[in-house]
Design a binder for these strands. Structure first.
Length: 543
RNA sequence: GCCGGGGUGGUGUAGUGGCUAACACGGGGGCCUGUGGAGCCCCAGACCCGGGUUCGAUUCCCGGCCCCGGCCCCA
């Protein structure tokens, strides 16, 4: 291979016809579903002012985006589409007297991250924004649309999780936790709960007698090691009298000596010990987070000054209990009412959340789990949130995420307008379809392939092609000047259903030899007849 | 940013401390009157890059780049 100086940038892909066909197929299905609900397609620029995304997500996301500077200022390639759509509304480009607004988009987005399975630096998102209704039926509709897309695609292996951020926010508000602090709690909570999830998974594997992979084991070690480092440093600080955390509590997070023997334990198949080690680690991981929040406080910014907010222990306990609020509705909701019992606002939010679930059942969507631990760093969600995972995808398994964001348009300087919506990852949907073994139908590139047997018949062959095309058929003309047997072989490989063979004798009599490639049957017919026969066959195939 | 596993013609694979680096498909050419959707013959085409070890590296070692997984992150 000659050395190629110009390469495709990392994290991007090319789309040869076969790949493009898959994307088109999924995109078409998505559009069908969206339009069935009355959503109208919109689009926004591929690049936007940096501030549009920094406003909500903060300066930190700079490193996660493609940023560039032009005369007009700092620009970024859009990392998502909700903010641009809200910007568009805020700018007054949309007639708000016609409500609700039902918009959908399909477009490329860009994030500067390490590529991984199902994660690219350039990726496709499709999504809807339903604006103008604050009611539960709007939230339910949005979820129903997302589920419909998966159904339309025939994707069965997925998991829908629905939660509500207003429950958490209401609880925190009632307990006097400032908004800025709330935003800083969500992140660590999410990290903690995903850590716990991982540990639970290892425990489950061991209990089921399954093997842990090398990665599992090193991941487990790493997570515990982090905790150990923190605990040791904290202990040192405590000796110097610099730690705000009481010594006896610190003793409780000291990591088990067995951490250093994980490999040996595993080699020796001392499963029970491993399990008890993991259980112990889970408890300590949680306790460490609690201690940080209670004694060091949650760091936050107020008026440009870094501050720390010391969390009340009972609030922290509730946050921890929240991580367990995952499961079937009948099971989780009552538990949630207990956990949040002291908070009027949280209870009210739970009522509203149940209204959404009720409405959802009217759409026939019953197969989901309630997950009140969904918190994510999504600072702009204000109510219901949901996620859809495809376990087949591995690490990057989320194919859909969405929720209610009633304040976003207003924050961009527009009118106050309630909104709810979601975004789908098209690349991941394609991947999920492939992995689930669903065949994506690839239409043949043409309906008929004309083979002129000599140069003399070219004028007639081209005339035939034009005739057939004028009737709406997709017709290719051979440009290869090959032997007939090779041409037929070629037609076969191209998957084109009909060959039209034209030699001097056909040209002279103004007919064609129409060959049905599949049946291997051939008839001499007029051009009109050929058109009719092909049309009939093609329609029957449903393209 | 971190941790694994990989990079051999256009594609998919084989193989090796030294021999002409193998095979299939694809490409080019040739033979066979217009259905032999085939076959036969010939040709072109590759060891990711840079160091090191060695008489000699595609092979072993190190670094880089890229790909594939995973961690972190995920608005």
């Amino acid at each position: 291979m000659p050395e190629l100086a110009i390469r495709r940038p990392r994290g991007t892909r090319d789309f040869p016809p076969a790949e493009m066909a898959k994307m088109d197929y999924v995109e078409a299905a998505i559009r069908r579903v969206f339009e069935r609900y009355g959503f109208q397609r919109i689009d926004t620029p591929i690049f936007e002012a940096f501030d549009l995304f920094a406003l909500r997500s903060g300066e930190e996301i700079r490193s996660k985006m493609f940023v560039f500077t032009i005369d007009e200022g700092e620009m970024v390639l859009r990392p998502e589409l909700t903010a641009p759509v809200c910007r568009m509304i805020a700018m007054g480009e949309v007639d708000l007297s016609v409500k609700p607004l039902r918009f959908y988009y399909i477009g490329r987005c860009y994030r500067y991250e390490e590529p991984q399975a199902g994660r690219y630096r350039e990726f496709w998102q499709a999504g809807i924004e339903l604006m103008g209704s604050p009611y539960p039926e709007a939230d339910a509709e949005v979820i129903a649309v997302a589920v419909d897309v998966l159904k339309e695609l025939g994707l069965k292996e997925y998991q829908l999780r629905i939660g509500d951020l207003e429950v958490l926010r209401g609880f925190l508000n009632d307990n006097g936790i400032p908004g800025e602090v709330q935003n800083r709690i969500i992140g660590p909570m999410d990290v903690l709960s995903s850590s716990i999830d991982k540990l639970k998974m290892y425990k489950r594997k061991l209990e089921a007698g399954e093997d842990l992979t090398k990665e599992d084991l090193s991941d487990l070690r790493r997570r515990c090691d982090e905790l150990r480092l923190w605990a040791e440093e904290e202990a040192k600080r405590s000796e110097l009298g610099e730690s705000p955390i009481p010594e006896e509590l610190l003793g409780q997070v000291e990591v088990d000596i067995r951490l250093y023997q994980l490999d040996e334990l595993y080699e020796a198949r001392r499963v029970d010990e491993l399990i008890s080690f993991i259980e112990d680690a889970m408890g300590k991981l949680i306790l460490a987070q609690k201690l940080k929040w209670i004694y060091y406080g949650v760091p936050y910014e107020e008026g440009g000054i870094e501050k720390a907010f010391k969390m009340p222990p009972d609030v922290v306990d509730t946050l921890i209990s929240m991580m367990d609020l995952v499961g079937p509705r009948e099971d989780v909701i009552p538990r949630a009412r207990e956990v949040f019992g002291s908070s009027e606002s949280a209870l009210k939010a739970l009522d509203a959340f149940e209204d959404v679930l009720d409405a959802l059942s009217w759409y026939g969507v019953e197969d989901y789990i309630v997950d009140l631990s969904i918190a994510r760093g999504l600072e702009y969600y204000t109510g219901m949130v949901f996620e859809i995972d495809c376990p087949l995808l591995g690490a990057q398994k989320q194919v859909c995420g969405g929720g209610r964001y009633d304040r976003l348009v207003e924050e961009f300087g527009g009118p106050s307008i309630p909104a709810t919506g979601f975004a789908l990852g098209i690349d991941r949907l394609v991947l999920a379809l492939e992995r689930s073994g669903i065949k994506i139908p690839t239409p043949s590139r043409a309906d008929a392939y004309i083979i002129p047997l000599s140069r003399d018949v070219l004028p007639y062959a081209i005339w035939v092609a034009r005739e057939l095309r004028s009737k709406g058929l997709r017709v290719e003309l051979s440009l290869l000047r090959k032997r007939l047997s090779k041409e037929l072989s070629n037609v076969d490989k191209l998957g084109i259903p009909f060959a039209i063979i034209i030699g001097p004798s056909e040209a002279e009599r103004k007919v064609v030899a129409l060959r049905d490639m599949k049946a291997k049957e051939q008839h001499e017919v007029s051009v009109e007849e050929a058109a009719e026969l092909i049309l009939k066959a093609v329609r029957g195939m449903g393209w």
